[in-house]
Design a protein around this nucleic acid. Structure first.
Lengths: 160, 160
DNA sequence: TTATACGTACAGTTTAAACTGTACGTACTT
DNA sequence: AAGTACGTACAGTTTAAACTGTACGTATAA
Protein backbone atom coordinates (compact mmCIF):
# COMPACT_ATOMS: atom_id res chain seq x y z
CA UNK A 1 0.00 0.00 0.00
CA UNK A 2 2.29 2.69 -1.28
CA UNK A 3 -0.06 5.12 -2.92
CA UNK A 4 -1.89 8.10 -1.49
CA UNK A 5 -4.11 8.77 -4.43
CA UNK A 6 -7.78 9.05 -3.55
CA UNK A 7 -9.04 7.13 -6.54
CA UNK A 8 -6.68 4.26 -5.87
CA UNK A 9 -7.64 4.12 -2.22
CA UNK A 10 -11.28 4.07 -3.12
CA UNK A 11 -10.56 1.25 -5.55
CA UNK A 12 -8.76 -0.66 -2.81
CA UNK A 13 -11.62 -0.22 -0.39
CA UNK A 14 -14.12 -1.22 -3.07
CA UNK A 15 -12.23 -4.33 -4.06
CA UNK A 16 -11.44 -5.47 -0.53
CA UNK A 17 -14.99 -4.89 0.61
CA UNK A 18 -16.43 -6.77 -2.38
CA UNK A 19 -14.23 -9.78 -1.63
CA UNK A 20 -15.67 -9.98 1.87
CA UNK A 21 -19.20 -9.73 0.51
CA UNK A 22 -18.45 -12.71 -1.74
CA UNK A 23 -17.97 -14.78 1.41
CA UNK A 24 -21.70 -14.46 2.04
CA UNK A 25 -22.33 -16.64 -1.04
CA UNK A 26 -22.94 -13.64 -3.20
CA UNK A 27 -21.53 -13.69 -6.72
CA UNK A 28 -18.56 -11.50 -7.64
CA UNK A 29 -20.71 -9.34 -9.92
CA UNK A 30 -23.32 -8.76 -7.23
CA UNK A 31 -20.69 -8.15 -4.58
CA UNK A 32 -18.95 -5.54 -6.70
CA UNK A 33 -22.22 -3.86 -7.49
CA UNK A 34 -23.12 -3.63 -3.83
CA UNK A 35 -19.67 -2.39 -2.81
CA UNK A 36 -19.64 0.30 -5.48
CA UNK A 37 -23.19 1.43 -4.65
CA UNK A 38 -22.42 1.52 -0.93
CA UNK A 39 -19.41 3.77 -1.49
CA UNK A 40 -21.43 6.23 -3.56
CA UNK A 41 -23.25 8.95 -1.70
CA UNK A 42 -26.25 9.00 -3.99
CA UNK A 43 -28.76 6.55 -5.50
CA UNK A 44 -27.78 5.37 -8.97
CA UNK A 45 -29.57 4.41 -12.19
CA UNK A 46 -28.98 1.23 -14.12
CA UNK A 47 -27.05 3.23 -16.74
CA UNK A 48 -24.82 4.87 -14.13
CA UNK A 49 -24.08 1.58 -12.43
CA UNK A 50 -23.34 -0.07 -15.76
CA UNK A 51 -20.99 2.73 -16.70
CA UNK A 52 -19.24 2.73 -13.34
CA UNK A 53 -18.58 -1.01 -13.51
CA UNK A 54 -18.08 -1.26 -17.26
CA UNK A 55 -20.98 -3.64 -17.76
CA UNK A 56 -24.11 -3.77 -19.85
CA UNK A 57 -27.44 -2.54 -18.51
CA UNK A 58 -28.79 -6.08 -18.78
CA UNK A 59 -26.09 -7.45 -16.51
CA UNK A 60 -26.73 -4.66 -14.00
CA UNK A 61 -30.47 -5.33 -14.18
CA UNK A 62 -29.90 -8.95 -13.32
CA UNK A 63 -27.50 -8.24 -10.47
CA UNK A 64 -29.57 -5.46 -8.91
CA UNK A 65 -32.64 -7.68 -9.04
CA UNK A 66 -30.84 -10.35 -7.07
CA UNK A 67 -29.54 -7.82 -4.52
CA UNK A 68 -33.04 -6.42 -4.22
CA UNK A 69 -34.49 -9.89 -3.62
CA UNK A 70 -31.87 -10.39 -0.93
CA UNK A 71 -33.09 -7.14 0.62
CA UNK A 72 -29.62 -5.60 0.41
CA UNK A 73 -30.63 -2.65 -1.80
CA UNK A 74 -33.84 -0.73 -2.22
CA UNK A 75 -35.61 1.24 -4.96
CA UNK A 76 -35.63 4.97 -4.40
CA UNK A 77 -38.08 7.46 -5.78
CA UNK A 78 -36.80 10.87 -6.82
CA UNK A 79 -38.96 13.61 -8.23
CA UNK A 80 -38.35 14.35 -11.89
CA UNK A 81 -36.38 11.16 -12.57
CA UNK A 82 -38.08 8.49 -14.55
CA UNK A 83 -35.30 5.97 -14.33
CA UNK A 84 -35.16 3.42 -11.56
CA UNK A 85 -32.84 4.47 -8.76
CA UNK A 86 -31.27 2.13 -6.24
CA UNK A 87 -29.29 2.60 -3.07
CA UNK A 88 -27.89 0.18 -0.53
CA UNK A 89 -29.15 -0.49 2.95
CA UNK A 90 -26.63 0.79 5.43
CA UNK A 91 -26.84 -1.67 8.30
CA UNK A 92 -24.25 -3.99 6.85
CA UNK A 93 -23.90 -6.53 9.61
CA UNK A 94 -27.60 -6.94 10.21
CA UNK A 95 -28.43 -7.26 6.53
CA UNK A 96 -25.70 -9.62 5.54
CA UNK A 97 -25.34 -11.74 8.62
CA UNK A 98 -29.04 -12.10 9.32
CA UNK A 99 -29.83 -13.25 5.80
CA UNK A 100 -26.82 -15.49 5.70
CA UNK A 101 -27.60 -17.22 8.97
CA UNK A 102 -31.27 -17.56 8.11
CA UNK A 103 -30.29 -19.26 4.88
CA UNK A 104 -28.07 -21.67 6.75
CA UNK A 105 -30.73 -22.50 9.30
CA UNK A 106 -33.61 -22.91 6.87
CA UNK A 107 -31.59 -24.97 4.44
CA UNK A 108 -30.20 -27.20 7.16
CA UNK A 109 -33.62 -27.62 8.73
CA UNK A 110 -35.02 -28.69 5.36
CA UNK A 111 -32.23 -31.18 4.80
CA UNK A 112 -32.57 -32.53 8.33
CA UNK A 113 -36.31 -33.02 7.80
CA UNK A 114 -35.70 -34.99 4.62
CA UNK A 115 -33.13 -37.15 6.37
CA UNK A 116 -35.45 -37.70 9.32
CA UNK A 117 -38.13 -38.90 6.92
CA UNK A 118 -35.72 -41.47 5.57
CA UNK A 119 -34.87 -42.45 9.14
CA UNK A 120 -38.52 -43.05 10.00
CA UNK A 121 -38.92 -45.27 6.97
CA UNK A 122 -35.87 -47.31 7.81
CA UNK A 123 -36.19 -47.58 11.55
CA UNK A 124 -37.84 -50.92 12.17
CA UNK A 125 -36.90 -54.31 13.55
CA UNK A 126 -35.24 -57.12 11.61
CA UNK A 127 -32.71 -54.92 9.88
CA UNK A 128 -29.86 -56.51 7.98
CA UNK A 129 -26.34 -55.64 9.00
CA UNK A 130 -26.06 -53.41 5.98
CA UNK A 131 -29.23 -51.59 6.86
CA UNK A 132 -28.14 -51.17 10.46
CA UNK A 133 -24.92 -49.59 9.35
CA UNK A 134 -26.69 -47.27 6.98
CA UNK A 135 -29.06 -46.29 9.78
CA UNK A 136 -26.10 -45.53 12.04
CA UNK A 137 -24.55 -43.37 9.35
CA UNK A 138 -27.84 -41.62 8.89
CA UNK A 139 -28.04 -40.93 12.61
CA UNK A 140 -24.60 -39.29 12.52
CA UNK A 141 -25.55 -37.18 9.53
CA UNK A 142 -28.76 -36.03 11.21
CA UNK A 143 -26.80 -35.11 14.34
CA UNK A 144 -24.41 -33.17 12.15
CA UNK A 145 -27.31 -31.18 10.79
CA UNK A 146 -28.67 -30.52 14.26
CA UNK A 147 -25.27 -29.28 15.41
CA UNK A 148 -25.13 -26.84 12.52
CA UNK A 149 -28.57 -25.54 13.40
CA UNK A 150 -27.63 -25.20 17.06
CA UNK A 151 -24.49 -23.33 16.13
CA UNK A 152 -26.10 -20.75 13.93
CA UNK A 153 -29.08 -20.37 16.21
CA UNK A 154 -26.79 -19.13 18.99
CA UNK A 155 -25.53 -16.26 16.89
CA UNK A 156 -27.32 -13.02 17.52
CA UNK A 157 -27.46 -11.17 14.20
CA UNK A 158 -29.34 -8.24 15.68
CA UNK A 159 -26.07 -6.90 17.04
CA UNK A 160 -24.60 -4.13 15.00
CA UNK B 1 -40.70 -39.88 0.11
CA UNK B 2 -42.78 -42.83 -1.04
CA UNK B 3 -40.24 -45.53 -1.62
CA UNK B 4 -38.82 -48.13 0.73
CA UNK B 5 -36.10 -49.40 -1.49
CA UNK B 6 -32.66 -49.47 0.11
CA UNK B 7 -30.79 -48.19 -2.88
CA UNK B 8 -33.16 -45.30 -3.30
CA UNK B 9 -32.91 -44.39 0.34
CA UNK B 10 -29.18 -44.46 0.20
CA UNK B 11 -29.31 -42.22 -2.84
CA UNK B 12 -31.57 -39.81 -0.99
CA UNK B 13 -29.24 -39.70 2.01
CA UNK B 14 -26.24 -39.24 -0.27
CA UNK B 15 -27.81 -36.44 -2.24
CA UNK B 16 -29.28 -34.60 0.74
CA UNK B 17 -26.03 -34.83 2.67
CA UNK B 18 -23.98 -33.62 -0.28
CA UNK B 19 -26.21 -30.56 -0.65
CA UNK B 20 -25.49 -29.61 2.94
CA UNK B 21 -21.77 -30.05 2.40
CA UNK B 22 -21.97 -27.63 -0.53
CA UNK B 23 -23.02 -24.95 1.95
CA UNK B 24 -19.50 -25.08 3.36
CA UNK B 25 -18.22 -23.56 0.10
CA UNK B 26 -17.27 -26.97 -1.22
CA UNK B 27 -17.94 -27.66 -4.89
CA UNK B 28 -20.72 -30.05 -5.92
CA UNK B 29 -18.23 -32.61 -7.21
CA UNK B 30 -16.22 -32.57 -4.00
CA UNK B 31 -19.34 -32.65 -1.85
CA UNK B 32 -20.68 -35.66 -3.68
CA UNK B 33 -17.36 -37.44 -3.43
CA UNK B 34 -17.23 -36.87 0.30
CA UNK B 35 -20.84 -37.92 0.85
CA UNK B 36 -20.39 -41.12 -1.16
CA UNK B 37 -17.12 -41.99 0.57
CA UNK B 38 -18.63 -41.32 4.01
CA UNK B 39 -21.51 -43.69 3.35
CA UNK B 40 -19.19 -46.50 2.27
CA UNK B 41 -17.85 -48.74 5.00
CA UNK B 42 -14.43 -49.22 3.42
CA UNK B 43 -11.63 -47.07 1.94
CA UNK B 44 -11.88 -46.67 -1.81
CA UNK B 45 -9.47 -46.38 -4.73
CA UNK B 46 -9.58 -43.69 -7.39
CA UNK B 47 -11.00 -46.22 -9.84
CA UNK B 48 -13.75 -47.32 -7.46
CA UNK B 49 -14.72 -43.74 -6.65
CA UNK B 50 -14.76 -42.85 -10.32
CA UNK B 51 -16.93 -45.83 -11.12
CA UNK B 52 -19.32 -45.16 -8.23
CA UNK B 53 -19.82 -41.54 -9.31
CA UNK B 54 -19.56 -42.11 -13.05
CA UNK B 55 -16.55 -39.83 -13.45
CA UNK B 56 -13.06 -40.08 -14.85
CA UNK B 57 -10.10 -40.94 -12.66
CA UNK B 58 -8.64 -37.53 -13.40
CA UNK B 59 -11.69 -35.76 -12.04
CA UNK B 60 -11.62 -37.94 -8.94
CA UNK B 61 -7.92 -37.27 -8.50
CA UNK B 62 -8.56 -33.55 -8.56
CA UNK B 63 -11.47 -33.69 -6.16
CA UNK B 64 -9.83 -36.04 -3.67
CA UNK B 65 -6.74 -33.86 -3.64
CA UNK B 66 -8.84 -30.87 -2.68
CA UNK B 67 -10.68 -32.80 0.04
CA UNK B 68 -7.34 -34.04 1.31
CA UNK B 69 -5.95 -30.51 1.46
CA UNK B 70 -9.04 -29.51 3.39
CA UNK B 71 -8.25 -32.34 5.80
CA UNK B 72 -11.64 -33.95 5.23
CA UNK B 73 -10.27 -37.28 3.94
CA UNK B 74 -7.09 -39.19 4.57
CA UNK B 75 -4.91 -41.66 2.71
CA UNK B 76 -5.07 -45.19 4.03
CA UNK B 77 -2.43 -47.87 3.73
CA UNK B 78 -3.59 -51.44 3.18
CA UNK B 79 -1.24 -54.36 2.83
CA UNK B 80 -1.16 -55.86 -0.65
CA UNK B 81 -2.89 -52.96 -2.34
CA UNK B 82 -0.78 -50.73 -4.46
CA UNK B 83 -3.49 -48.28 -5.34
CA UNK B 84 -4.10 -45.19 -3.26
CA UNK B 85 -6.93 -45.66 -0.81
CA UNK B 86 -8.92 -42.87 0.81
CA UNK B 87 -11.49 -42.68 3.55
CA UNK B 88 -13.30 -39.81 5.19
CA UNK B 89 -12.73 -38.42 8.64
CA UNK B 90 -15.71 -39.19 10.79
CA UNK B 91 -16.02 -36.19 13.05
CA UNK B 92 -18.21 -34.27 10.67
CA UNK B 93 -19.04 -31.21 12.73
CA UNK B 94 -15.53 -30.61 13.93
CA UNK B 95 -13.98 -31.07 10.52
CA UNK B 96 -16.41 -29.01 8.54
CA UNK B 97 -17.34 -26.30 10.97
CA UNK B 98 -13.85 -25.72 12.30
CA UNK B 99 -12.34 -25.30 8.87
CA UNK B 100 -15.21 -23.19 7.70
CA UNK B 101 -15.06 -20.81 10.62
CA UNK B 102 -11.30 -20.58 10.47
CA UNK B 103 -11.58 -19.60 6.83
CA UNK B 104 -14.07 -16.90 7.68
CA UNK B 105 -11.95 -15.50 10.49
CA UNK B 106 -8.64 -15.53 8.65
CA UNK B 107 -10.10 -14.08 5.48
CA UNK B 108 -11.97 -11.36 7.34
CA UNK B 109 -8.90 -10.53 9.43
CA UNK B 110 -6.84 -10.16 6.27
CA UNK B 111 -9.42 -7.90 4.67
CA UNK B 112 -9.74 -5.84 7.83
CA UNK B 113 -5.97 -5.37 7.97
CA UNK B 114 -5.92 -4.13 4.37
CA UNK B 115 -8.72 -1.71 5.10
CA UNK B 116 -7.02 -0.50 8.27
CA UNK B 117 -3.90 0.24 6.24
CA UNK B 118 -5.97 2.41 3.93
CA UNK B 119 -7.49 4.07 6.99
CA UNK B 120 -4.06 4.96 8.40
CA UNK B 121 -3.06 6.50 5.12
CA UNK B 122 -6.18 8.58 4.88
CA UNK B 123 -6.60 9.64 8.45
CA UNK B 124 -5.04 13.08 8.68
CA UNK B 125 -6.17 16.66 9.08
CA UNK B 126 -7.38 18.96 6.33
CA UNK B 127 -9.57 16.42 4.63
CA UNK B 128 -11.95 17.49 1.90
CA UNK B 129 -15.62 16.77 2.39
CA UNK B 130 -15.34 13.94 -0.10
CA UNK B 131 -12.43 12.43 1.76
CA UNK B 132 -14.21 12.75 5.07
CA UNK B 133 -17.19 10.89 3.72
CA UNK B 134 -15.01 8.16 2.29
CA UNK B 135 -13.27 7.86 5.64
CA UNK B 136 -16.62 7.50 7.37
CA UNK B 137 -17.65 4.79 4.95
CA UNK B 138 -14.36 3.07 5.52
CA UNK B 139 -14.90 3.17 9.27
CA UNK B 140 -18.28 1.47 8.86
CA UNK B 141 -16.80 -1.18 6.61
CA UNK B 142 -14.00 -1.89 9.10
CA UNK B 143 -16.55 -2.18 11.91
CA UNK B 144 -18.50 -4.60 9.72
CA UNK B 145 -15.43 -6.76 9.42
CA UNK B 146 -14.81 -6.66 13.15
CA UNK B 147 -18.39 -7.70 13.83
CA UNK B 148 -18.00 -10.70 11.54
CA UNK B 149 -14.83 -11.73 13.32
CA UNK B 150 -16.48 -11.30 16.73
CA UNK B 151 -19.41 -13.40 15.60
CA UNK B 152 -17.46 -16.35 14.34
CA UNK B 153 -14.99 -16.19 17.21
CA UNK B 154 -17.80 -16.88 19.66
CA UNK B 155 -18.70 -20.14 17.98
CA UNK B 156 -17.18 -23.18 19.62
CA UNK B 157 -16.43 -25.66 16.83
CA UNK B 158 -14.95 -28.19 19.26
CA UNK B 159 -18.46 -29.25 20.19
CA UNK B 160 -19.58 -32.39 18.52
C1' DT C 1 -50.78 11.17 -31.66
C1' DT C 2 -46.10 10.34 -32.40
C1' DA C 3 -41.58 9.90 -30.80
C1' DT C 4 -38.55 8.78 -27.23
C1' DA C 5 -37.06 6.62 -22.94
C1' DC C 6 -36.83 2.78 -20.08
C1' DG C 7 -36.47 -1.83 -18.13
C1' DT C 8 -36.59 -6.43 -19.31
C1' DA C 9 -37.17 -10.67 -22.18
C1' DC C 10 -34.65 -13.20 -25.22
C1' DA C 11 -31.13 -15.28 -28.12
C1' DG C 12 -26.58 -15.64 -28.74
C1' DT C 13 -21.68 -15.16 -26.99
C1' DT C 14 -18.04 -15.37 -23.64
C1' DT C 15 -15.77 -17.04 -19.67
C1' DA C 16 -14.21 -19.88 -16.09
C1' DA C 17 -14.79 -24.11 -13.86
C1' DA C 18 -15.20 -28.87 -14.36
C1' DC C 19 -14.61 -32.43 -17.03
C1' DT C 20 -12.41 -36.23 -20.39
C1' DG C 21 -8.87 -38.83 -22.62
C1' DT C 22 -4.05 -39.34 -23.56
C1' DA C 23 0.61 -39.64 -22.41
C1' DC C 24 4.23 -39.70 -19.26
C1' DG C 25 7.26 -40.88 -15.34
C1' DT C 26 7.60 -43.84 -11.54
C1' DA C 27 6.79 -47.99 -9.03
C1' DC C 28 5.77 -52.69 -8.91
C1' DT C 29 5.39 -57.45 -10.77
C1' DT C 30 6.83 -61.19 -13.52
C1' DA D 1 15.04 -56.58 -17.95
C1' DA D 2 10.55 -56.17 -19.77
C1' DG D 3 5.84 -55.55 -19.04
C1' DT D 4 2.14 -53.71 -16.39
C1' DA D 5 -0.08 -50.71 -13.05
C1' DC D 6 -0.73 -46.36 -11.15
C1' DG D 7 -1.35 -41.42 -10.33
C1' DT D 8 -0.88 -37.18 -12.39
C1' DA D 9 0.38 -33.64 -15.95
C1' DC D 10 -1.44 -31.86 -19.90
C1' DA D 11 -4.25 -30.49 -23.82
C1' DG D 12 -8.58 -30.34 -25.37
C1' DT D 13 -13.73 -30.54 -24.56
C1' DT D 14 -17.96 -29.68 -22.11
C1' DT D 15 -20.92 -27.25 -19.09
C1' DA D 16 -23.10 -23.76 -16.55
C1' DA D 17 -22.88 -19.16 -15.19
C1' DA D 18 -22.28 -14.60 -16.60
C1' DC D 19 -22.28 -11.70 -20.01
C1' DT D 20 -23.71 -8.74 -24.46
C1' DG D 21 -26.70 -6.81 -27.85
C1' DT D 22 -31.22 -6.59 -29.84
C1' DA D 23 -36.02 -6.21 -29.70
C1' DC D 24 -40.18 -5.58 -27.40
C1' DG D 25 -43.93 -3.67 -24.48
C1' DT D 26 -44.99 0.01 -21.52
C1' DA D 27 -44.60 4.63 -19.83
C1' DT D 28 -43.52 9.33 -20.56
C1' DA D 29 -42.62 13.59 -23.08
C1' DA D 30 -43.33 16.58 -26.83
Amino acid sequence: MVTNNNETMQQNIFYTFSKTIEFFSISPAEAQLFAMLYLKEYPMTLDEMGQALGKSKTAIGTSIRTLSELNLVRRVWKKGIRKDLYETHHDLYSKFMKTYINNWISHTNNQKALLSDVYEQMNRTNLSEEETQLLNKLTSIIEFHQSIIDTFTTIDPKKN
